[in-house]
């Protein structure tokens, strides 16, 4: 463990708390893509299936449980509790275009052709692009509640912070994980436009609005 990874994980944790807080205080999941949230459940379940056969640490164990449980809870909130506040007509990204390529890529580019290893690889590729339905929705509506932008910023910071972690691990542990690194760079790259508006507008106290 190093500081970058710890901060990345904490940022990830924070993003989830912000999202749950947003849904509960506004009693609405307006502006949140159900598809993106469903993809995160898929990502966590596929990757953390190793809870059954791989022990890393107590930290790692509880974080995995938390990510699976909280993502399922968010789906529940969106699907049942606050269902009327979700507008499927603006959440129309075709997730097949993300899941399909992630399946194919994980079958081709993996470390070992084994079921759980391919699931891990699939989860890494899918996570890289899982935010797209959410960003697509933001693009369509052209604006977002401030709290939603804080959620997205914390979520984007999480993978961005993993990048110095990988550089650090390369030098200190001689560990390199090309699949995670390439996917992580793509994932972070997808946030660049968002970060630009977040830093130049939201953090200056303005509303998140995309130019018409």
């Amino acid at each position: 463990m190093n500081l970058f990874r710890l901060l990345g994980d904490l940022s990830h944790l924070a993003s989830i708390f912000i999202l749950i807080h947003k849904i509960q205080t506004t009693r609405s999941c307006r502006g949140i893509s159900f598809q993106t949230q469903a993809l995160y459940v898929t990502v966590f379940v596929a990757r953390y299936i190793d809870l059954f056969f791989r022990w890393i640490s107590l930290y790692n164990f509880f974080m995995k449980i938390f990510f699976i449980a909280s993502s399922v809870y968010i789906l529940y909130l969106m699907k049942y509790r606050y269902r009327p506040t979700h507008d499927p007509s603006i959440d129309t990204f075709k997730v097949e275009y993300l899941v399909g390529p992630a399946v194919v890529l994980s079958l081709i580019f993996n470390y070992k052709f084994e079921f759980t290893e391919i699931l891990w690889t699939f989860s890494i590729y899918l996570e890289a692009v899982a935010i797209l339905p959410q960003l697509f929705m933001l693009q369509r509506t052209g604006e977002a509640e401030t709290i939603t932008t804080h959620y997205l910023a914390a979520l984007g910071a999480y993978r961005a912070l993993y990048i110095p972690n990988w550089i650090y691990r390369y030098f200190t542990e001689d560990v390199v994980d090309p699949i995670a690194i390439v996917a992580g760079l793509v994932q972070t790259g997808l946030y660049l436009d968002f970060f630009y508006v977040y830093f130049t507008k939201v953090l200056q106290g303005q509303k998140f609005e995309l130019p018409a």
Binding site: S57, V176, A180
Partner: peptide, 10 residues
């Protein structure tokens, strides 16, 4: 040559 990554990250 390096061993394959051991998936100890989240």
């Amino acid at each position: 040559h390096r061993p394959p990554p051991k998936h100890d990250e989240l």
